[in-house]
């Protein structure tokens, strides 16, 4: 079953083509990583799927509805975490979560349990204005998970999270995906997501340059497979809080992902 269908979609802001001619489908229970530089069109694609901006060309179907046509009942089954999420500073975390649960017409008690899942703990009754970046991100995740969404759109979900929470977060997402939720993760760092996402879509300057499983992409990019499979055992281990995570501190992985993106752009464009 297809959750999201994007057909030849373009979005133009003035003279800039934020997205041009992108087409892809996301199936039920799929976990997809959307990768690209800043300004590659990732956030615009998410906004298009939410109906917050209208496509200049092409059509979008999300959970059986056209989001740009002003229909919004599908949004009840959708969770969204914007990049740099922000909340009203004067409300407490609990009040914020209740507010969003009411808007989605979901049971309040269940939504409040999510605050414990993301580990907000005692901070739930403090005003959001006093929260750190990481705590706001946790609250952002909690609101995105309200009501067992069938589609999760997460824009840079793990910024500001410590390694341990990152781990629990991915576990929660994977559990949801296994239960049939489609998850679209946006990031500019491939290393962060490659182990988890079954499929990777790479955007560059608004154009989809690659789409496939990581192994397929590696083969296309003729990348040594060693660099990607070096750490899975490490990654699966839990890191104590504050422990430097090899994925995000090591310079070597960063270079390899950059060179891969670079190469994939060339070879895959030629191949396709």
């Amino acid at each position: 079953m297809t959750t999201v269908r994007i057909t030849d979609v373009s979005k133009r802001y003035g003279r800039i083509d934020a997205v041009s001619g992108a087409s892809f489908e996301l199936g039920q229970g799929e976990m997809v990583a959307l990768i690209g530089h800043n300004g590659a069109g990732k956030t615009t694609l998410m906004k298009l799927m939410l109906g917050l901006v209208h496509p200049t060309h092409g059509s979008i179907q999300v959970l059986g509805e056209d989001p740009a046509a002003g229909q919004f009942s599908a949004r009840r089954r959708l969770g969204y975490l914007p990049e740099n999420v922000s909340f009203d500073a004067t409300l407490t975390g609990r009040e914020t979560q209740r507010f969003y649960a009411r808007l989605k017409q979901e049971p309040i008690a269940k939504a409040e349990q999510l605050l414990d899942v993301v580990g907000l703990g005692a901070a739930v009754d403090r005003r959001v204005g006093t929260y750190s970046k990481g705590m706001r991100q946790r609250l952002g995740l909690a609101q995105a998970l309200i009501g067992r969404p069938q589609l999760l759109l997460l824009d840079e979900p793990t910024t500001g999270l410590d390694p341990e929470l990152r781990q629990t977060f991915y576990e929660a997402i994977q559990r949801l995906a296994a239960e049939g939720t489609t998850v679209l993760l946006c990031s500019h760092a491939l290393t962060e997501l490659e182990e988890r996402a079954g499929r990777v879509i790479i955007m560059n300057r608004g154009v989809k340059v690659a789409d496939g499983s990581l192994d397929e992409l590696r083969r296309l990019a003729q990348l040594p497979t060693g660099s990607g499979s070096k750490y899975p055992a490490l990654l699966k281990a839990r890191y104590p809080p504050g422990y430097p995570h090899p994925r995000h501190t090591g310079g070597s992985t960063a270079t390899s992902s950059r060179s891969m993106r670079h190469r994939s752009k060339r070879s895959i464009c030629c191949g396709a």
Binding site: L50, L52, G70, F72, S73, R75, R76, L78, Y80, P82, N84, V85, S86, F87, D88, Y100, L103, K104, Q105, G140, Q143
Partner: peptide, 14 residues
Amino acid sequence: ERGTMLLLLSYPVA
């Protein structure tokens, strides 16, 4: 400007 509208409009409200 504060960014709260973006999240609010992703909810099922017109």
